[in-house]
Design a protein around this nucleic acid. Structure first.
Length: 455
RNA sequence: GUGGAUGUAGCUCAGCUGGUUAGAGCGCUAGAUUGUGGCUCUAGAGGUCGCCGGUUCGAUCCCGGUCUUUCACCCCA
């Protein structure tokens, strides 16, 4: 067979032991916060039925779904006419009935409806799994990446939102990353659309104004024109976007503008309540009401969140919001949910740039036992059993290689201690223990060895 | 999906506006040091110059295509 160059698909990555140690540090930190807030873990399959996925993420989202080709005779049921005419949508539905999950929220909604008989509401679950998007990769954007989601369904209370903000606070304070949480509300955005007489174009409006701080007001106006907004509508929008002051001041001004605008006023009231909660709770996280924050996923109906890291140029590292009827499309209407999602891969990139990983906690074995040959190795293995029973990670060099080589192995693996058991040590029932950081070594008893390593 | 860059040793990169043997640093292997890592010195291994095709007496270099990586846009974590 011809030798082929090893490679992996575009936008995917391998993770080395060092990278996994760092990734697990992130996962463990997030997980422990989730547990602390009473969330419990579930997992769902990598593949969902395509019908569960399609139509949940908007037109763009549908295009980014990875579809899985049917097994067996996947051409049966297709018509050659469709191939000739290039009816891609129809064909893809016939060729693929499964797709890789695009996020964790929609599979969760499916899970909730499918298992509604066994779920006690309100249901708090978290989920840490990879998701896949057929996007063109670039900085901080991969085709396979991990999300860490915590969601509550079956409760309308804004206390849930307040809890999610605290989760964000605790996760990033534990990781030592300075961030700002942007808060907005989809009802405010709907109110804006209504206010300017373009109620049917909420999505177009949000996509455009989301770019405000990036491209400036003039470009946003241009884009709105392109998206078919009237000059008059844009004129009326401008003062809303220009609202300034503290969060509460902005809310006050909005309230005046929204007079008689039911949806808009409801959004203002929700944000006000949330801000009140956060203040009463003494939340130290930096947060701000950002009226231009939109977020693309079109299933959000209430609060929306997005987290930006300070000091690092990267897209949002976390986001979420409330969705009132995601379970409705699966046949269980009236269940409101709210959740937050942490982008583990981007958080990794941020911590990497900030050199924020606690390297000392991320290593492997604490001690390496040198291999001098069959008899000595067996004796060392016995000692290793005792060391491991004491809860210390230990390993032996599996081959009787030159001592220099074994030492070099310990050095490159950053193993802090090396134990040498040769003929002399076997006779005396002692171990030569070398401290690799200081370079000193001494003869110790098995008990002393364990004691040294336990410190 | 649109537009721009990129690909030479395991890694980071040189390579003269197309010429005979493609280099460096780091890493790796061995030795100096047969029971002691890091530092030093010595030697060595390692390349179909991303892949396919074209132009040419001759291509790592020029042209076309393709794939990879990467940047911006769209969109998004």
């Amino acid at each position: 067979m011809a030798v082929q160059k090893p490679s992996i698909p575009k936008g995917t990555r391998d993770f080395s032991p060092e990278e996994m140690a760092r990734r697990n540090y992130i996962f463990d930190t997030i997980k422990s916060v989730f547990y602390r807030f009473g969330y419990r873990q579930i997992e769902t399959p990598a593949m969902e039925n395509l019908s569960s996925l399609l139509g949940k993420y908007g037109e763009e989202g549908d295009k980014l779904l990875f579809k899985v080709l049917n097994s067996g005779d996947f051409l049966s049921g297709t018509a050659s006419q469709d191939f000739q005419e290039g009816n891609l949508n129809k064909l893809s539905m016939q060729l693929c009935e499964k797709g890789l999950r695009y996020d964790l929220t929609v599979p969760f909604a499916r899970y909730v409806v499918q298992n509604q008989g066994n779920i006690v509401f309100p249901f708090k679950r978290f989920q840490i799994q990879p998701v896949w998007r057929a996007d063109r990769p670039q900085k901080g954007r991969y085709r396979e990446f991990y999300q860490c989601d915590a969601d509550v369904v079956g409760s309308d209370s804004l206390l849930n939102e307040a809890e999610l903000v605290q989760i964000v606070e605790q996760v990033f304070s534990a990781l030592g990353v300075a961030v700002t949480l942007k808060i907005n509300n989809r009802k405010i955005l709907s109110g804006m659309a209504e206010l300017i007489g373009e109620a049917s174009k909420v999505t177009d409006l949000t996509v455009a104004i989301d770019k405000l701080d990036k491209i400036g007001i003039e470009k946003v106006k241009e884009e709105l024109m392109e998206r078919g907004f009237t000059r008059d509508a844009i004129l009326r929008l401008e003062p809303v976007l220009a609202l300034s002051g503290t969060d509460y001041e902005k809310l006050g001004k909005l309230e005046v503008l929204f007079a008689g605008n039911e949806t808009g006023l409801k959004g203002v009231a929700e944000v006000r309540t949330l801000l009140d909660y956060l203040e009463a709770l003494g939340v130290k996280l930096s947060y701000v009401l950002d009226l231009t924050l939109a977020r693309g996923l079109n299933y959000y109906t209430g609060a929306i969140f997005e987290v930006k890291a300070h000091d690092v140029e990267i897209g949002s590292i976390s986001g979420g919001g409330r969705y009132d009827n995601l379970t409705g499309v699966f046949g269980q209407p009236g269940l409101s949910g709210v959740g937050i999602s942490f982008g583990a891969d981007r958080i990794y990139d941020v911590l990497n740039q900030l050199q924020g990983f606690p390297e000392d906690r991320l290593q492997g074995s604490r001690i390496l036992f040198v291999n001098f040959g069959e008899k000595e190795a067996l004796c060392a293995m016995k000692m290793i059993r005792r060391v491991r029973e004491a809860g210390i990670s230990a390993e032996m060099y599996p081959d009787p290689a030159k001592l220099k080589k074994q030492m070099g192995y310990a050095d490159s693996r950053k193993i802090p201690y090396v134990a040498v058991i040769g003929e002399e040590e076997m006779e005396k029932q002692m171990i030569t223990l070398k401290d690799m950081t200081t370079g000193t070594q001494s003869m110790v008893s098995p008990e002393e060895l364990i004691q040294t390593l336990t410190l």
